[in-house]
Lab assay of single mutants.
Amino acid sequence: MATGGRRGAAAAPLLVAVAALLLGAAGHLYPGEVCPGMDIRNNLTRLHELENCSVIEGHLQILLMFKTRPEDFRDLSFPKLIMITDYLLLFRVYGLESLKDLFPNLTVIRGSRLFFNYALVIFEMVHLKELGLYNLMNITRGSVRIEKNNELCYLATIDWSRILDSVEDNYIVLNKDDNEECGDICPGTAKGKTNCPATVINGQFVERCWTHSHCQKVCPTICKSHGCTAEGLCCHSECLGNCSQPDDPTKCVACRNFYLDGRCVETCPPPYYHFQDWRCVNFSFCQDLHHKCKNSRRQGCHQYVIHNNKCIPECPSGYTMNSSNLLCTPCLGPCPKVCHLLEGEKTIDSVTSAQELRGCTVINGSLIINIRGGNNLAAELEANLGLIEEISGYLKIRRSYALVSLSFFRKLRLIRGETLEIGNYSFYALDNQNLRQLWDWSKHNLTITQGKLFFHYNPKLCLSEIHKMEEVSGTKGRQERNDIALKTNGDQASCENELLKFSYIRTSFDKI
């Protein structure tokens, strides 16, 4: 039985969820670079991206490699990797027998973001014989899940209580170790020597080791999670996991709180800001991140802002960003909400898709409305799209047979046209069989910064309504002859009103 693990408890099935942008060198404390989270699957090609990484700022997932063999891993080693800020997950990587050479110096898994409450997941690794993470000293947050690894031993010899604050939620089941077939031998045991430290858990006094050649490092209890030197002297209180010299914040392997210019500090002093819960960055760093993602459509890219001495992905609820200094300031009234469309555009074809934009005031991208039916549609669209004030790209209304009016965009005031449909149009209306009105132009103002209007096959939309939009939106004169079809717009509506004058002759039985 794995020490510190839980057996036999019912657990939810383990679901495996399925960018080499360097964020800056980590400095003297770390020998390499800070790398983003990685999802490495199918083959070993991307694994080489770990070569210079000291910190993975995010998670590391290595999974679904069915053609790899043990010899493929023999020359692979990433000794610079010290810390993973989120979680480490391995799933069905064939041929991998140990992690001792792959990650010989991995010391800390912070667990800032977890995989279903777990910071370390080893699942269905069919050839893994031992973990071998002999320098792993601290899992700051989260638990361990090690399950269905039929060859995995050296679990009962690990004292997880020396690595985690609590072992109650560890789930370590259905491994070879369960069948008591392992016969784990710690260093020196074969020669009758006791080389590794022994600890007591559940009444068992057991030597602690990761492999037959690597003991588990056990520091004096007084050192807590700070770690200790090879001689057993406690590291500085700002260290986490390990250090090369005692009581020196510049000799830590990793930091308990924050890293700044080669030393570990309790908090980031001005003019620095907390970033990702582990390091200090200056304003320029946060500003660069903001600008890199301002026009990016890459998933996970955030326009970072500053709030409460932190550089964070977005302002919290009730705050909006001051564009001059990136500071989050309290909103006066309802907060603006910028919604970034991942692929640059979004099609609204149902109430469900409209709900995804609920509360958005600025759309960074283009909207395509293609709704053919739905219950209580006008009210639903207004509830979900009615706060949109600005669209950076274009607005396209296409084959939306259920629409009679666009009044559900009740606050839309600006279409920038930074991206144009077919390279020309910022407003595009095609084949809307029941569209009769755009907006009530006596109450609604709309500016279209650039781009043209396109109207074709809107049989109940009168040309007068379209011409009014040209005047109000500032697009009059931009359109070419064929942009607004004269014969297919309003051709099934009563669009022309003329005053009919009647004269009559009164007659009676005795007068003409």
Rank of each mutant, 00 (worst) to 15 (best):
H28C: 11
C35K: 00
P36I: 11
P36W: 15
P36C: 02
P36D: 01
D39A: 11
D39S: 06
D39P: 02
N43V: 05
L44S: 10
E51I: 13
C53I: 04
S54G: 00
I56D: 00
G58M: 00
H59E: 13
Q61S: 07
L63R: 07
K67R: 12
T68I: 04
R69K: 05
R74F: 04
L76T: 03
F78E: 00
K80M: 12
K80Q: 07
I82K: 03
T85V: 09
Y87F: 06
Y87Q: 00
L88R: 01
L89T: 05
L90N: 00
R92F: 11
Y94R: 13
F103H: 00
P104K: 02
P104E: 02
L106A: 00
L106C: 01
T107H: 13
T107R: 01
V108G: 02
L114N: 05
N117Y: 10
V126A: 15
K129T: 13
E130C: 03
G132S: 14
N135Q: 12
M137F: 08
N138P: 00
T140L: 07
I146Y: 01
E147A: 15
N149F: 01
E151W: 04
E151M: 05
C153I: 01
A156N: 15
T157Q: 10
I158Q: 03
D159H: 15
L164H: 08
S166L: 06
V167L: 13
D169R: 14
V173P: 10
K176W: 14
D178M: 12
C182Y: 15
C182T: 02
D184H: 06
P187A: 12
G188C: 13
A190I: 06
K193Q: 03
P197E: 06
A198L: 09
T199M: 03
I201V: 08
N202P: 08
Q204M: 06
C209E: 04
W210M: 01
H214G: 04
C215V: 08
C215P: 13
Q216C: 02
Q216K: 09
V218I: 14
C219E: 02
K224I: 08
K224G: 11
S225Q: 05
T229R: 09
A230T: 05
A230K: 15
C239A: 00
C239H: 00
L240R: 05
L240I: 13
G241S: 11
N242C: 06
N242K: 03
C243S: 00
C243H: 00
Q245K: 10
P246I: 09
D248W: 02
D248F: 02
P249Y: 04
P249M: 03
V253A: 13
V253G: 04
R256W: 03
N257W: 03
N257K: 05
F258P: 00
L260C: 01
G262W: 01
R263W: 03
V265T: 04
C268Q: 00
P270V: 07
Y273W: 12
Q276T: 13
Q276I: 04
D288T: 07
H291R: 09
C293I: 13
N295A: 09
N295E: 06
N295H: 15
R297L: 09
G300N: 11
C301R: 03
H302P: 07
H302Y: 10
Q303P: 11
K310M: 09
C311E: 01
E314P: 02
C315S: 00
Y319L: 03
T320R: 14
L327N: 11
C328L: 01
T329P: 04
L332V: 15
